[in-house]
Amino acid sequence: MLKTEEWLLIRDLYSQGFSISEISRRTGYARETVRKYLKKKTAPEPQKRPPKPSKLDPFKPYIQEKLKEGPYTAVRLYREIKEMGFDGGKTIVKDFVREVRPKQGVPAVLRYETKPGVQAQVDWAEMEQLRLMER
């Protein structure tokens, strides 16, 4: 597939009077390719390819069910589907698990602040004994 600039170059050379053979020599494209793109009235649009089926496709529902049940690692899931007949590699399983695993965020903490001298905090793990001052 030609880029828009290359298509414009072919059309420009043809409008200047160059033959298809000469355009082919200058651009490096075959004469049939030059003819094909000279017939087009609009610039070529890139076309998307249909998605290629993955080796993991038959096992995706199983992996998703297992991830809903509990925290499974990608390596464990890989071993399980390998026993079921999967012939792909670990990386494809790890990438898929990373995509579908529920995201675990850090829980938000509401900060509680007071004015100086109103509240005290103590780390009880460091204290062996509590002594109160008597007045």
Rank of each mutant, 00 (worst) to 15 (best):
M1H: 10
L2I: 09
L2R: 03
L2N: 01
T4R: 08
E6A: 08
E6Q: 13
E6K: 04
E6S: 09
L8D: 11
L8C: 05
L9Y: 03
D12N: 12
L13A: 03
Y14S: 15
S15K: 12
G17V: 10
F18K: 13
S19M: 05
I20E: 11
E22P: 08
I23S: 03
S24C: 03
R25T: 11
R26K: 12
T27V: 07
G28P: 10
G28K: 06
Y29V: 09
E32D: 14
T33E: 03
V34S: 01
R35C: 09
K36N: 09
Y37S: 05
L38S: 07
L38A: 07
A43L: 04
P44K: 06
Q47N: 10
Q47A: 12
K48I: 09
R49S: 10
R49G: 11
P50G: 10
P50Q: 04
K52D: 05
K52G: 08
K52M: 07
S54R: 10
K55R: 10
K55E: 12
L56Q: 01
L56S: 02
L56C: 03
D57F: 01
P58R: 03
F59M: 01
P61S: 09
P61V: 11
P61Y: 01
Y62S: 05
I63A: 02
Q64V: 12
E65G: 15
K66H: 03
E69W: 01
E69V: 12
P71I: 14
Y72S: 10
T73W: 00
A74M: 05
V75W: 01
V75N: 04
R76F: 06
L77D: 00
Y78H: 02
Y78M: 00
R79P: 02
R79Q: 13
R79H: 09
E80R: 00
I81Q: 00
E83L: 05
F86V: 00
F86M: 00
F86I: 00
G88P: 07
V93A: 02
D95A: 14
D95N: 13
F96W: 01
V97G: 02
V97C: 11
V100G: 06
R101E: 01
R101A: 07
P102H: 06
P102V: 12
P102R: 14
K103P: 07
K103G: 09
Q104V: 15
G105F: 13
V106I: 15
V106T: 14
V106R: 11
P107Y: 04
P107R: 12
A108R: 12
A108S: 15
A108Q: 15
V109P: 12
V109L: 13
V109S: 11
V109F: 09
R111N: 11
T114Y: 06
K115L: 08
K115T: 12
P116F: 04
G117N: 10
G117I: 03
G117R: 07
G117V: 07
Q119Y: 05
Q119V: 14
Q121S: 15
V122S: 04
D123K: 08
D123M: 08
A125C: 10
E126M: 12
E126C: 08
E128P: 14
Q129M: 13
Q129S: 15
R131A: 13
L132E: 07
L132T: 11
M133V: 15
E134M: 08
E134T: 14
E134L: 13
